[in-house]
């Protein structure tokens, strides 16, 4: 997953990175992964026939199973997205019936699962540099990278503050109306932003001091290999078959 090249102490993402590197998916060029998965997601999003939607869901689950990304991590990420999927599905079910609502859930889930596998099976830097090499404007890819770095710093500072609070006997969470707890949590939030902002400034100066302007450049430009092309071809093929059947050309 999105990683730790920026900060060093996020144990779980680091573990996931180790998985990503060791797995066959981690060795695929990020550009191939992005193209393959996006093609699949676009095709899956256009499906309306229930059997095809279930087929795309099965393919997404099979992709997740083969990816060697830890199941628990994928399940946790999926559960995070589930409330949004359910709200959308429930809305469709209310206005168009249960079957359409089910289709909505299955269709969205197949897209989300495929994207989660992509994000979890690729190191962050590779993912963003892959986007850049696919022609995403440098402003966007750099903004993504810096935003991600800032989010990690924010999380890091929050973890430190929480540890410091616990070390000094703060328990909190007794009641939402506990004024002291609210004060402490409010102050913590303020301090986290102040400290994270200072560290983000240091990090940015660190980049500037080494000639960074607005684009992340690589030492060596990676080349697509046969395995990368096969990956894209497989997804393109599967997506074409789904689209062809959907459009009535086959079956």
């Amino acid at each position: 997953m999105i990683v730790a090249h920026v900060r060093g102490h996020h144990t779980r993402p680091e573990e996931l990175d180790e998985h990503a590197r060791a797995s066959w998916l981690g060795r695929i060029d990020p550009r191939a992964k992005i193209i393959g998965v996006v093609v699949f997601v676009v095709a899956a999003a256009l499906l309306t026939r229930t059997e095809l939607i279930l087929a795309s869901l099965s393919l997404a689950v099979a992709f997740a199973a083969m990816s060697q990304v830890p199941y628990r991590h994928l399940a946790r990420m999926y559960l995070g997205a589930l409330p949004f999927i359910l709200v959308a599905s429930a809305s469709v079910a209310l206005f168009a019936g249960l079957e359409r609502g089910f289709d909505m859930w299955a269709r969205t889930s197949s897209c989300v699962i495929a994207l989660l596998v992509l994000a979890s099976g690729t190191e962050t830097f590779e993912l963003f540099s892959g986007l850049r090499r696919l022609g995403v404007p440098k402003l966007v890819s750099t903004l993504l990278m810096l935003t991600y770095k800032y989010v990690l710093i924010l999380g890091d500072e929050l973890a430190r503050m929480k540890t410091a609070r616990r070390a000094r006997g703060f328990k909190g969470g007794r009641s939402i109306l506990d004024r002291r707890s609210l004060d402490v949590i409010g102050n913590t939030a303020g301090m986290v932003f102040v400290r994270a902002s200072a560290r983000a400034d240091d990090g940015y100066e660190g980049l500037r001091s080494r000639g960074f302007r607005s684009d992340m450049k690589l030492m060596r430009a990676p080349r697509l290999r046969a395995g990368d092309i096969a990956f894209v071809a497989w997804f393109a093929c599967v997506s074409s078959i789904l689209a062809a059947v959907q459009l009535g050309g086959v079956g």
Binding site: V3, H5, V6, R7, G8, E123, F125, E126, K149, R199, D202, G203, E205, G206, L207, S209, R210
Partner: peptide
């Protein structure tokens, strides 16, 4: 703090 400076994978 070297973490302010190290950025690449």
């Amino acid at each position: 703090d070297p973490d302010d400076q190290i950025f690449m994978p």
